[in-house]
Design a binder for these strands. Structure first.
Lengths: 225, 225
DNA sequence: GATTGCAGGATTGTAGACAATATGATTTGA
DNA sequence: TCAAATCATATTGTCTACAATCCTGCAATC
């Protein structure tokens, strides 16, 4: 009788986010509210909350009276996101190199270590989460709420862009380049750190195939399982 | 019988936003859903939508099972917002100086002209809207969606900060400094334009009184009328 | 006298039902 | 045969009622 109240809004968001990043949900697919409500075993109200969050993160577009669709970022939008990332991440690095506490340095190194483990064991889900999580952790370490939320928005959009335009099967936002950046920060070497980050972003962007989007699958239930 | 369906979500958001900017709603005040629903003559559902938007804009904090409260930005948060604004607005200016179209230049000059009118007639509501709107228009003119939304978030937070910490009664984000910036952009003088913007932001921030927050009034209905 | 426990009231969170709107197929006319 | 209008279906938008949670005031007890 006492039905489990189902996943929270945040859990739904993460599930959809991951499904998009893993390419199980393709751009252009409509996320119908009742369908999602059935899949997640929650009411439509909670689904609508999750969809508004996903819209804010730039992963879906909500068209009034039409519904929510997974975004198809254009090539221009993709380049724009990376352009802004260069500016913002540079700002983050510069502030970190001025002063980074020992505990924060430890957190960064621990994170890179986790990335190495996920890569070694080839667990795609963890690789995706941790890869974006590194950049997010950098922003969090700065201590600026605004930079953190901005980076969060950038990362979620980058994940979608990578899912759409990535050419290879490997995720090249690997732990090695991250590790170098952390060590440059540890040495308070702002020049080196910013160069490494710029190179890292160039590298990630260069892996993208900026041709047209392929078509989409419709098996919602399987993609979200 | 056919009750007018009341203001839209966006209209509610703008009304609350303006009430905060005009200091008729003080930080810490709880925005009770039913109360707002009565005032705006809409259902609680729409109020909840508006509150989530206001939370995203950084104007209210929603505590689960507790309610929505107008944010009290700390001095650190205030300085942080202005720090990020320096970076982002500089980025905006640099991109604009590289290439700004004639129609966009015209829009900027028109906007400044409107600011002059509002200032001459001393219409506080318009002054507040247009003052932030100038910076928003700059970002929009760049053509980057992400920069635009980022600037939007920064401006709304700045409005709250200004409302809380502003010392004088005049709004010093006046049209004169804006006009100078536009002309520097028109001349593609990136160095001058970025300097003017930096000075402008210094000016705005210097007008803030970073002492403690005074206490708050509770007259919701009067504040929102 | 201070603290803890316990109702009573108020507020938010959720679900389900109904209304409004858009889509797509079908039919009708030129 | 094609175009335009119409109706049926499906989906979203909104409202109302109910459930869960939290704060407030009071009283009892140590």
């Amino acid at each position: 009788m006492t039905e489990q109240s189902g996943p929270s809004t945040q859990q739904i968001v993460e599930k959809v986010w991951l499904s998009i990043a893993e390419r199980r949900l393709r751009p252009g697919v409509q996320l119908k509210e009742e369908q999602l409500a059935t899949i997640f075993n929650v009411s439509r109200a909670r689904i609508r909350q999750a969809l508004t969050v996903l819209e804010r993160d730039g992963l879906v577009t909500i068209i009034p009276n039409r519904g929510a669709f997974i975004c198809k970022p254009s090539v221009e939008e993709a380049r724009d996101v990376f352009f802004v990332r260069r500016t913002v991440e540079r700002c983050v690095i510069e502030r970190l190199c001025v002063s980074v506490s020992k505990p924060n340095l430890r957190r960064l190194r621990d994170h890179v270590a986790q990335e190495r483990i996920a890569n070694a064991q080839d667990i795609t889900t963890d690789i995706i989460k941790l890869s974006g999580g590194f950049h997010l952790l950098l922003a969090e370490t700065v201590g600026s709420d605004f930079l953190f939320t901005t980076m969060r928005d950038l990362i979620s959009r980058s994940s979608l862009i990578t899912a759409v335009y990535r050419n290879t099967n490997r995720f090249n936002c690997g732990p090695d380049e991250h590790a170098e950046i952390v060590e440059a920060i540890a040495n308070n070497d702002a020049v080196k750190a910013t160069h490494l980050m710029a190179h890292h972003l160039d590298h990630v962007e260069s892996e993208l195939d900026l041709s047209e989007i392929r078509d989409l699958s419709h098996d919602l239930r399987a993609a979200l399982s």
